[in-house]
């Protein structure tokens, strides 16, 4: 039983990362109907930026907690700026072009960022230093939870609750929801869709940057291909929950984390990845709008 709980904890930890990154995919898809392939690489970029910032600050004599907050904030700012620039240069000119052109542009942006990281930081693995967080851990029902894991879970939940409130109870949130239902109608109602797009890119980038820092701090080794590894999983999470559906991708992230943990723990570590994708295909065939997605009749 304690092993089962441990697997749940494992699943929730990686699930937090999936959920944070998945939100970036889902929000962009919701409004622009575009799979933003470059989002995963933004996450990788944030891990590298975070590492540079942390090594800058760590010797400065500031208290550790303050350094951590600073690193999270500045990384989020830089990645948000990068996200906005990316949208301006690579996606906005293609707003009215055929859908696939934007997909190719996104793939190009992904290659650009990924290989830019490789050229600048080198192809080798870089490591976050140890001792960023205290190495305390607690044993609950026989399962070990470390300080970092607890921090990750709590921060993710806080971010998600705030995002849900923002989407549901503010003016901007209403604008985002309206634009994702029907962009043209939203424009007619006087909503500045360009501004909505900028906002979702900022939110997506900020959440992604937190995910990227989690990867760096928790797993410690970062590599330039990291964006594809996590990006693809997070994207699946977004689809599991119903792409375009914000609560859906939170649920999807945690479900995917739990699913992979339990499959590789109890069924087969060798075939875990294949099982995940078979699940994905089955869900697509029988419920293409995802677990939480609403069944909407296809518009003609």
């Amino acid at each position: 039983m304690d092993i089962f709980i441990q697997q749940i904890v494992n699943g929730l930890t990686i699930g937090s990362i999936f959920a944070l990154v998945a939100l970036g995919y889902t929000m962009v898809y919701g409004v622009m109907k575009l799979i933003n392939f470059a989002h995963g690489d933004m996450v990788a970029l944030s891990a590298y930026v975070g590492l540079v910032l942390y090594t800058q600050f760590v010797g400065s004599g500031m208290p550790q907690a303050f350094i951590i907050i600073l690193v999270f904030l500045i990384t989020a700012l830089i990645i948000a700026a990068a996200g906005v620039i990316l949208e301006r240069l690579a996606y906005r000119p293609l707003r009215n072009a055929p859908r696939l052109s934007a997909v190719v542009s996104a793939l190009g942006a992904s290659m650009l960022i990924q290989n830019g990281i490789m050229l600048y930081w080198g192809p080798n693995i870089l490591t976050f230093p140890i001792g960023i967080f205290p190495e305390t851990s607690w044993v609950i029902f026989g399962a070990t939870i470390t300080f970092i894991q607890a921090f990750m879970l709590i921060l993710t939940v806080v971010l998600m609750v705030s995002l849900t409130m923002f989407i549901n109870f503010t003016k901007y949130g209403t604008a985002i929801r309206a634009s994702s239902i029907n962009q043209d109608a939203a424009k007619l109602m006087g909503i500045n869709v360009n501004m909505v797009v900028t906002i979702i890119f900022i939110i997506g980038a900020v959440l992604g940057s937190v995910g990227g820092l989690f990867i760096g701090i928790y797993y410690r080794g970062i590599e330039f291909t990291l964006g594809w590894n996590y990006g693809l999983s997070a994207f699946i999470a977004a689809i599991l929950g119903g792409i375009g559906n914000i609560p859906g991708s939170m649920v999807g992230g945690y479900l995917l984390g739990l699913f992979t943990a339990l499959i590789s723990g109890y069924v087969s570590s060798v075939w875990a990845e294949a099982f995940t994708y078979i699940l994905l295909i089955v869900i697509l065939i029988f419920r293409p709008t995802g677990i939480l997605g609403e069944r909407v009749a296809e518009k003609v």
């Binding site: 072009a97 190009g108 650009l112 490789m118």
Partner: peptide, 21 residues
């Protein structure tokens, strides 16, 4: 060679922006 995909990335964006078809 190391710049290959970096340049491809830029080329893909530019070609799509200029000639979406």
């Amino acid at each position: 060679e190391t710049y290959r995909y970096f340049v491809f990335g830029i080329a893909m964006i530019v070609s799509m922006v200029l000639r979406p078809q």
